[in-house]
């Protein structure tokens, strides 16, 4: 019998010859989908304005990526979903009230300056969306801190302004916070559902938890960073959270307000900018939690998640280096090296 295939048509390549179906773009799109519940809640509470900010932020992220890669004659990788995710995360971290140029500038800073100028996907030191937001917060401090009262009516364009729960906590204390929301249960309810002032994608704790658990279930993230981040924050909030006495703080308020859940599940876990070794991830998460609470309780800003993650991003490479995974069978790194000599 004559072989159907001529020999010179046989493909020769290095092993392994089979690969999993996982891909970078599938990861990016899955993470984007996991953010959908929180995004929808943001749009529900902050109206068309929120949708507008999100759309602008995503479109300008994609456009920035495309134009940069086109201009530098690089492979166009807009389809891998990473720019989309950056745009989405940036949008979710903005107040719904910002003018149109804010998301555009933010996306440009995130995608071009933070990611592409450092070598593109995989080589950026800092979380792009967070640098985008940090840039905006420092450059436009007023615009970035105008928080509107959530409205369920999608049509209402002129919303009243207010302070975020963390803002109230910082400036006026727990008593005022209770006064605004009525009682503790009501406060929790508002925080869980997302019916409170804040960045448009960070308010609904329930929706963020759903997305986070989905990512854990799909094993796109592991418990190491979120758990160590949240646990550290909770412990610090409990011990030092109340003014004047120890062990009287309310950890729950801290966990489900501000950008804590969005940060712990979706931003600190960014593959590129967090450590890759699991033990190192725990240290990274603890550092994020510690810095967040330090800023929240002692710093000048009511919220510290963004700066905490960005600062810890700097340490990710050195954490990886010092937590280098242990070689199979090696008793100790240095001992193994001795036997090799």
């Amino acid at each position: 019998m004559e072989p159907v295939k001529k020999e010179h048509e046989l493909l020769v390549s290095v092993s392994p010859h089979i690969k999993s179906e996982e891909s970078t773009s599938r990861i990016m799109w899955t993470v984007s989908i996991s953010l959908l519940p929180a995004t929808l809640m943001g749009v529900y509470f902050f109206g068309m304005k929120a949708l507008f900010v999100l759309a602008l932020s995503i479109i300008s992220a994609l456009a920035s990526e495309y134009i940069f890669q086109k201009a530098l004659n690089r492979k166009i990788m807009v389809g891998d979903g990473s720019a989309f995710l950056t745009g989405l995360l940036l949008g979710m971290n903005l107040p719904a009230s910002v003018p149109f140029y804010i998301p555009i500038i933010g996306s440009f800073v995130a995608v071009v300056i933070t990611k592409q100028l450092f070598g593109g996907l995989g080589f950026n030191v800092f979380n792009p969306a967070l640098i985008g937001r940090a840039f905006l917060l420092i450059s436009f401090p007023k615009l970035m801190t105008i928080w509107t009262v959530p409205v369920s009516a999608l049509t209402q364009l002129d919303a009243k302004t207010t302070a975020t729960p963390l803002g109230i906590l910082k400036e006026e204390g727990v008593a005022k916070l209770m006064e605004v929301f009525g009682n503790k249960m009501s406060l929790y309810q508002h925080l869980l559902s997302g019916n409170r002032a804040g960045s448009l994608g960070e308010t609904s704790a329930i929706a963020l938890l759903i997305g986070g658990l989905f990512l854990l279930y799909k094993r796109y993230i592991t418990w190491h960073i979120p758990l160590s981040f949240l646990a550290t924050s909770a412990v610090i909030a409990w011990i030092f959270g109340a003014k004047g006495e120890f062990f009287a703080g309310d950890p729950i308020v801290h966990l489900i307000s501000g950008g804590m859940l969005l940060g712990a599940f979706f931003m600190a876990t960014d593959y590129v900018t967090c450590p890759s070794v699991k033990n190192g991830q725990i240290l990274f998460g603890v550092g994020c939690g510690f810095l967040t609470m330090l800023i929240r309780l002692k710093g000048g800003f009511p919220e510290g998640v963004m700066f905490a993650i960005l600062i810890m991003n700097c340490f990710a490479p050195i954490i990886d280096r010092s937590f280098k995974s242990k070689v199979f069978g090696a008793v100790k790194q240095d001992k193994a090296k001795e036997t090799r000599k």
Partner: peptide
């Protein structure tokens, strides 16, 4: 594509390498 440092290879490497 570029390495996105997802760490999957580190988690599964039977020899404990990176």
């Amino acid at each position: 594509g570029p390495c996105i440092r997802c760490g999957r290879c580190i988690d599964i490497c039977p020899m404990g390498l990176m």
